[in-house]
Design a protein around this nucleic acid. Structure first.
Length: 496
RNA sequence: GGGCCUCUAGCUCAAUUGGUAGAGCUGCGGACUUUUAAUCCGUAGGUUGCGGGUUCGAGCCCCGCGGGGCCUACCA
């Protein structure tokens, strides 16, 4: 006989273990391999949308669900059985229908959190609650741990560390888990409907590249080499474009070995797509359509309501501004890529922005932009034409000197997506990557080494292309107003 | 990286100046055939995050460590 009495266990857990043993010893099964279910709880709800209070339907069903509310009286017991998706139906066990033994066992063995099944006629209680009037019941799975109180909010830490409990207790947790998948499906549908091909690119990479970030490093025993977990799929998607997959995307997980806080997760979801014979304006247009179609799929419309009750309108063509003109308007002075650093620093000091002496002029302009312009945004906003000295890997603007063909999409004050007219000249790309490699050689952990194979691919000729990256977590944040950790089912947490 | 706050029963939280660790829900026993956080009677449940120190006495004060949160800095 197994010893299921574990010492030092909290009383309530020990009692549930004792009940489990009592179930088995009584000849019932606490964990049957199969349960005689005839209807899901959803099906019962759909089939009997309105049963008048106190009336019966004559239809017998067997339903199973988790017990989330329980109320026992002397000869009549109530329980609310809920499906995983959150639909509930009431079970009623009365002495005259289920019999004395089954009623007593129910009262003494069933706890909140247990999975049970009941067989019985569908009807409505005197209060009008749709109910299954049990003639028979059994366990589907006995729960050995007590649930938290239903009417007090679970601490944020418990919600994240024990997401299974969060999913049981909180409607919003169940909702966001489904919304995330809905958003991903919407992005896939939107892109494949437009002729894009979804590919998979490697997570284990021999060289880091495609972004400036510190990678996670791991080791491959067979080849005895260090490998990097990807920080971006970019260089592989460009290889696809070179190879003729001219509309291509990857929905992937990236890993960055940097800070983890309320807006940054060390692993995060990302959509990247590339479209040949398109430029950054085309990429912006498609990005807007993707976000709007995702909003339609997830929220049922383009006007979305956040968890704090605020309403956000994602419809329309959205505002597009250029970085330098917007800063010029805000500070009342003409700011261009040739404005001297001293003048830019002066403007920062005047409004209390601390300037790092190492910053290049473009960086200082971006600080002025974030201070003066970003807070004025009233809806989704594309900001285009960034300083060349902060975007060394990006193609120069076709007409404006000193800026590059890059945009950032701001929603709710954070950056949701970024897009480029991709640099495809292999000679210029090599020069810029060589400069990065020099930084890497000097110890800059975020700089990329020279990827000869990528350059060889470009030297075969890559058509002019638009490239876009969008954060999946941030898309969910924009649609729901949640923090990043609520959009990720299992965010990384430090072990206790 | 810096600063501030926080960790007490299964869950959510109290505990006055350093003086017997409590409540609600949950649990357990009992009553109740229409409950929705039922009601009533009775009752159990604690290594106060971990380790040291001060003190006659520490949940409370001091030091160290760990977890969490907020602000700030940095990074995308």
């Amino acid at each position: 006989m197994t010893d299921d009495a574990i010492s030092d266990l909290p009383e309530q857990m020990q009692i549930r273990r004792d009940k489990r043993r009592a179930v088995l010893e009584s000849g019932r099964d606490a964990y049957p391999v199969r349960v005689p279910v005839t209807h899901t709880i959803e099906q019962v709800r759909e089939q009997f949308p309105e049963v008048p209070a106190g009336e019966m339907t004559g239809v017998e069903v067997v339903v199973a669900g988790r017990v989330l509310f329980i109320r026992n009286t002397g000869k009549l017991c109530f329980a609310s059985l809920r499906s995983g998706a959150g639909t509930a139906v009431q079970a009623m066990l009365s002495l005259d229908r289920v019999g004395e033994d089954a009623l007593d066992e129910w009262k003494h063995l069933v706890d909140l959190g247990d999975h049970v099944w009941v067989r019985g006629e569908v009807g409505a209680s005197k209060r009008g609650e749709l109910s299954v009037f049990a003639t028979e019941w059994g366990f589907a799975a006995k729960s050995l741990r007590p649930l938290p109180v239903a009417h007090k909010p679970l601490s944020e830490e418990t919600r994240v560390r024990q997401r299974y409990v969060d999913l049981i207790m909180r409607d919003e947790a169940r909702t966001i888990a489904r919304q995330r998948i809905t958003a991903l499906a919407s992005l896939r549908t939107s892109l494949t409907d437009r002729g894009f091909l979804e590919v998979e690119t490697p997570i284990l990479q021999t060289l880091q590249g495609g972004a400036s970030a510190r990678p996670f490093v791991t080791h491959m025993n067979a080849y005895d080499i260090d490998l990097f977990l990807r920080i971006a799929p970019e260089l592989f998607l460009k290889r696809c474009v070179v190879g003729g997959i001219e509309k291509v995307f990857d929905i992937n997980r990236n890993f960055r070995n940097e800070g983890a806080d309320s807006t940054h997760s060390p692993e995060f979801g990302m959509l990247e797509f590339y479209e040949a014979y398109a430029d950054y304006d085309d990429g912006a247009r498609l990005t807007r359509e993707l976000v709007q179609e995702a909003a339609q799929a997830v929220c049922g419309g383009l006007v979305v309501t956040h968890v704090d009750g605020t309403v956000h309108d994602l419809s329309g063509p959205w505002t597009t501004i250029a970085l330098y003109p917007s800063v010029s308007a805000a500070v009342g002075r003409d700011i261009t890529p040739t404005t001297p650093l001293s003048e830019l620093v002066e403007l920062c000091v005047a409004v209390g922005i601390d300037v790092d002496p190492a910053w290049v002029p473009g960086r200082v302009v971006e600080e002025l932009f974030e201070h003066h312009v970003v807070p004025t945004f009233t809806g989704p906003t594309f900001v285009k034409d960034y300083p060349v000295d902060t975007s060394p890997l990006t193609r120069d603007h076709r007409t404006d000197a000193g800026v590059v063909e890059k945009w950032d999409l701001y929603v709710d004050g954070f950056e949701l997506a970024t897009g480029y007219s991709e640099l495809v000249d292999p000679v210029i790309q090599r020069e810029r990557l060589q400069a990065q490699a020099a930084l890497a050689a000097r110890g800059d952990a975020e700089a990329m080494p020279l990827d000869e194979d990528f350059l060889a691919a470009l030297e075969h000729g890559m058509p002019p292309s638009a490239g876009v990256g969008m954060g999946i977590d941030r898309l969910l944040m924009a649609l729901t107003g949640l923090g990043i950790r609520d959009t990720i089912l299992f965010p990384l947490v430090k072990p206790l």
